[in-house]
Design a binder for these strands. Sequence first.
RNA 1: GGGGCUGUGGGGUAGCCUGGUAGCCUUUCAGGUUUGGGACCUGACGACCCCGGUUCAAAUCCGGGCAGCCCCA
Length: 474
Amino acid sequence: MNKEKNFSKWYSDILEKAEIIDLRYGVKGFIVIRPWGAMILENMYQLYEKALQKKNHKSCFFPVVIPEKNFKKESSHIKGFTPEVFWLQKVQGEDKLALRPTSETAFYQMYSLWIRSWRDLPLKLYQRANVFRYETKATRPLIRSREFYWIETHDVFATREEAEKQVQEDIETTEEIMHEKFGIPFLPMKRPSWDKFAGSVYTIGSDVLMPDSKLIQQPSTHLLGQNFSKAFNIKFKDEKGKEEYVWQTCYGPAPSRILASVISTHGDDKGLVIPFCIAPIQIIIIPIFNTKNKKNVLDESKKIKRELENLGLRVEIDDSEKRPGEKYFEWELKGVPFRLEIGEKEIKEKKLTLFTRDTEKKETLNMRDLPKIKKFGDEFDSRLKKKADDFMKDKIVNCKTKQDLKKAMENKKIARVNFCSIEKEGEKCAEHVEKEIHAEIRGTLANKREHPKGGKCIICNKKAKEVVYIGKSY
RNA sequence: GGGGCUGUGGGGUAGCCUGGUAGCCUUUCAGGUUUGGGACCUGACGACCCCGGUUCAAAUCCGGGCAGCCCCA
């Protein structure tokens, strides 16, 4: 498995070999997620949901089906999503039913019933859900599937100002979880108006680099403004008794897609490297025994396991009859951060052999020092994050001319350029970039205003209003 | 959206051109000997993607479908 030479092959191989997914279900764009993949996903969900709860979100579950009449209430939303909707063929009654591609039109029907007064606001709910989109582009496992697993938040406020604050909070949540925890750096991009979420005022997507230097969109957050509140009649009475439409936002991180980034970013030629904080098994204990000392070694292993578990760590013992070497290969392939080897030698010397997955170093660890593994785990995650940050760092290059831009794309970089506008009047220039340079305007930096300082648009040479980022994408 | 490649036991493949016997490696299962970086011996289970056509006869040729992968827009 050679990640650098042939990323595509490496990616599909590793998904199968590490038992993340099984591709043989036989329906285009639908995959089976196996236990090892599911356990990683579960840990990702938990970290994400905890972060949302801390920021006053509450959990709920909505139906997977959405009646057609709901779906059609917000005109630009229908337009954007209708081509991708799976419709149920057989339905009871008269309403046609859609499998949710996203749940705005499910939530907001209820929001119009639940919200009456300023006292009901803000309302911040999320659900953990699988959603369905009939992708017409080539599907790729976890990267672009027709069913994926995500979280969607749907937040409601009395004012636009609060709603915009929420959008910034969502970007911070992405930073806190996807970057700080999972070690995946991103560029928060305010999308051009022609590329925003259907039904939103504006969209901010998180662009993440894959090893082949193409960008993939990870969590996106949207200012919905009053578009849906007007369509669904979601109104409240303010403190003075005046009736107003609410302001809304939504945010959608997809753990199944983020998993694709985690695997591609951190993995190496030996297999997965899973961040300590989401590894289903953080430490695998390999007992090294022969027929005579088997019981003794296993007893000692169990003792170590209990001690580590008492520290709140996820530990397993591989007591199968395979030889140690085979176990090493297998657990390295599966990306377990640490391996403890326990044999006669270790028991005698009261020292363990500790192997670290990312550095591939073996060292001895005094049995008294087991609690240090927690710290080692944090350091493990920091190293993964730093490596990913470094990869991202020299990818962004400033370009002044079309020639520069072409060259940057050939060199697999992200270009930072002056651009006329990300509103409608800039669309022609964007089309030019797509046709001539085969790249996309990804947007402007969303958490920091960058000024073109009197520069000209790299395409039309008119006065530039924005600094945009251009790259190739999935 | 356009183009290309591929489909043979659980996985990887040979056979296909030139129609007739499904071969190999691995996994799995059972038993035994082993166990400090992918163990060995013996035995067993297990396959031609689907539908149609041509033919005495189809894994092989033809048409269609489905699925996977790759490249381009």
